[in-house]
Protein backbone atom coordinates (compact mmCIF):
# COMPACT_ATOMS: atom_id res chain seq x y z
CA UNK A 1 0.00 0.00 0.00
CA UNK A 2 2.64 2.51 1.02
CA UNK A 3 4.77 1.46 -1.94
CA UNK A 4 1.86 2.03 -4.31
CA UNK A 5 1.21 5.49 -2.87
CA UNK A 6 4.89 6.34 -3.07
CA UNK A 7 5.03 5.28 -6.70
CA UNK A 8 1.90 7.26 -7.47
CA UNK A 9 3.27 10.40 -5.80
CA UNK A 10 6.62 10.21 -7.53
CA UNK A 11 5.05 9.51 -10.92
CA UNK A 12 2.54 12.32 -10.60
CA UNK A 13 5.23 14.81 -9.63
CA UNK A 14 7.61 13.54 -12.29
CA UNK A 15 5.05 13.67 -15.07
CA UNK A 16 4.01 17.19 -14.11
CA UNK A 17 7.60 18.35 -14.26
CA UNK A 18 8.65 16.65 -17.52
CA UNK A 19 5.73 18.35 -19.22
CA UNK A 20 7.12 21.78 -18.35
CA UNK A 21 8.99 23.99 -20.74
CA UNK A 22 11.98 24.65 -18.56
CA UNK A 23 14.64 22.05 -19.21
CA UNK A 24 15.91 21.96 -15.62
CA UNK A 25 12.40 21.12 -14.50
CA UNK A 26 12.30 18.35 -17.09
CA UNK A 27 15.54 16.93 -15.70
CA UNK A 28 14.18 17.08 -12.14
CA UNK A 29 11.01 15.34 -13.31
CA UNK A 30 13.11 12.68 -14.92
CA UNK A 31 14.89 12.05 -11.63
CA UNK A 32 11.53 11.65 -9.87
CA UNK A 33 10.33 9.18 -12.47
CA UNK A 34 13.54 7.23 -11.97
CA UNK A 35 12.85 7.03 -8.24
CA UNK A 36 9.29 5.89 -8.92
CA UNK A 37 10.40 2.99 -11.11
CA UNK A 38 13.07 1.95 -8.62
CA UNK A 39 10.55 1.88 -5.77
CA UNK A 40 8.21 -0.16 -7.98
CA UNK A 41 10.92 -2.70 -8.83
CA UNK A 42 11.99 -3.15 -5.22
CA UNK A 43 8.38 -3.53 -4.07
CA UNK A 44 7.88 -6.12 -6.80
CA UNK A 45 10.31 -8.26 -4.82
CA UNK A 46 7.80 -8.28 -1.98
CA UNK A 47 7.50 -5.86 0.90
CA UNK A 48 6.71 -8.48 3.51
CA UNK A 49 10.30 -9.79 3.66
CA UNK A 50 12.59 -6.94 4.64
CA UNK A 51 15.70 -8.60 6.00
CA UNK A 52 19.11 -7.73 4.57
CA UNK A 53 20.16 -10.08 1.78
CA UNK A 54 23.50 -10.70 3.48
CA UNK A 55 24.30 -14.34 4.20
CA UNK A 56 24.84 -14.97 7.85
CA UNK A 57 23.20 -11.79 9.09
CA UNK A 58 19.67 -11.97 10.38
CA UNK A 59 16.95 -14.50 9.75
CA UNK A 60 17.44 -16.19 6.33
CA UNK A 61 13.68 -16.69 6.11
CA UNK A 62 13.14 -12.92 6.21
CA UNK A 63 15.84 -11.91 3.69
CA UNK A 64 14.49 -9.65 0.96
CA UNK A 65 14.58 -10.71 -2.68
CA UNK A 66 18.08 -9.72 -3.87
CA UNK A 67 17.39 -9.71 -7.60
CA UNK A 68 15.28 -6.51 -7.75
CA UNK A 69 17.86 -4.86 -5.53
CA UNK A 70 20.60 -5.72 -7.99
CA UNK A 71 18.51 -4.32 -10.82
CA UNK A 72 17.75 -1.15 -8.96
CA UNK A 73 21.32 -0.62 -7.88
CA UNK A 74 22.53 -0.47 -11.45
CA UNK A 75 19.43 1.45 -12.45
CA UNK A 76 20.25 4.18 -9.95
CA UNK A 77 23.74 4.58 -11.31
CA UNK A 78 22.51 4.60 -14.87
CA UNK A 79 19.83 7.13 -14.01
CA UNK A 80 22.59 9.24 -12.57
CA UNK A 81 24.59 8.88 -15.79
CA UNK A 82 21.62 9.97 -17.83
CA UNK A 83 20.85 12.84 -15.49
CA UNK A 84 24.39 14.12 -15.86
CA UNK A 85 24.05 13.76 -19.60
CA UNK A 86 20.79 15.72 -19.57
CA UNK A 87 22.36 18.43 -17.48
CA UNK A 88 25.22 18.60 -19.93
CA UNK A 89 22.69 18.97 -22.72
CA UNK A 90 21.10 21.86 -20.85
CA UNK A 91 24.50 23.47 -20.46
CA UNK A 92 25.59 22.81 -24.02
CA UNK A 93 22.56 24.85 -24.99
CA UNK A 94 20.14 22.47 -26.62
CA UNK A 95 16.79 24.09 -27.15
CA UNK A 96 17.54 26.44 -24.25
CA UNK A 97 14.00 27.58 -23.94
CA UNK A 98 13.53 28.21 -20.29
CA UNK A 99 11.00 30.98 -20.52
CA UNK A 100 7.31 30.69 -20.75
CA UNK A 101 5.70 32.91 -23.29
CA UNK A 102 2.00 33.45 -23.80
CA UNK A 103 2.14 32.19 -27.36
CA UNK A 104 4.22 29.11 -27.37
CA UNK A 105 4.16 28.54 -31.08
CA UNK A 106 6.27 31.56 -31.92
CA UNK A 107 8.73 30.61 -34.67
CA UNK A 108 12.43 30.55 -34.00
CA UNK A 109 13.31 33.64 -36.02
CA UNK A 110 11.52 35.93 -33.59
CA UNK A 111 13.59 34.73 -30.70
CA UNK A 112 16.86 35.43 -32.41
CA UNK A 113 17.92 38.90 -31.11
CA UNK A 114 19.53 37.89 -27.87
CA UNK A 115 23.19 38.05 -28.83
CA UNK A 116 23.57 41.84 -29.10
CA UNK A 117 21.86 42.43 -25.78
CA UNK A 118 24.25 40.12 -24.11
CA UNK A 119 27.11 42.09 -25.55
CA UNK A 120 25.82 45.29 -23.96
CA UNK A 121 25.91 43.97 -20.47
Amino acid sequence: MTAAIAVGLLVAGGVYLVLQRNLIRVVVGFVLLGHAVNVLVVSAGGMDRRGLPLIGQGDPGQAADPLPQAFVLTAIVITFGITVHLLALVQAGGPADDEERPDEERPDEERAPSGPERGQR
Binding site: A3, A4, V7, Q20, S43
Partner: peptide, 25 residues
Protein backbone atom coordinates in the same frame (compact mmCIF):
# COMPACT_ATOMS: atom_id res chain seq x y z
CA UNK B 1 0.15 24.18 -19.52
CA UNK B 2 0.07 23.80 -15.74
CA UNK B 3 -3.49 22.51 -15.87
CA UNK B 4 -2.76 19.96 -18.60
CA UNK B 5 0.45 18.84 -16.93
CA UNK B 6 -1.27 18.50 -13.57
CA UNK B 7 -4.17 16.55 -15.04
CA UNK B 8 -1.89 14.19 -16.89
CA UNK B 9 0.37 13.89 -13.87
CA UNK B 10 -2.49 12.90 -11.61
CA UNK B 11 -3.86 10.47 -14.19
CA UNK B 12 -0.51 8.76 -14.78
CA UNK B 13 0.20 8.79 -11.06
CA UNK B 14 -3.09 7.09 -10.28
CA UNK B 15 -2.50 4.57 -13.04
CA UNK B 16 0.97 3.82 -11.68
CA UNK B 17 -0.26 3.50 -8.11
CA UNK B 18 -3.11 1.20 -9.09
CA UNK B 19 -0.76 -0.90 -11.16
CA UNK B 20 1.71 -1.16 -8.30
CA UNK B 21 -1.07 -2.14 -5.94
CA UNK B 22 -2.40 -4.70 -8.38
CA UNK B 23 0.85 -6.28 -9.43
CA UNK B 24 3.02 -6.37 -6.31
CA UNK B 25 2.81 -8.01 -2.89
Amino acid sequence: RRAVAAALGVAVGVAAAVATLALTG
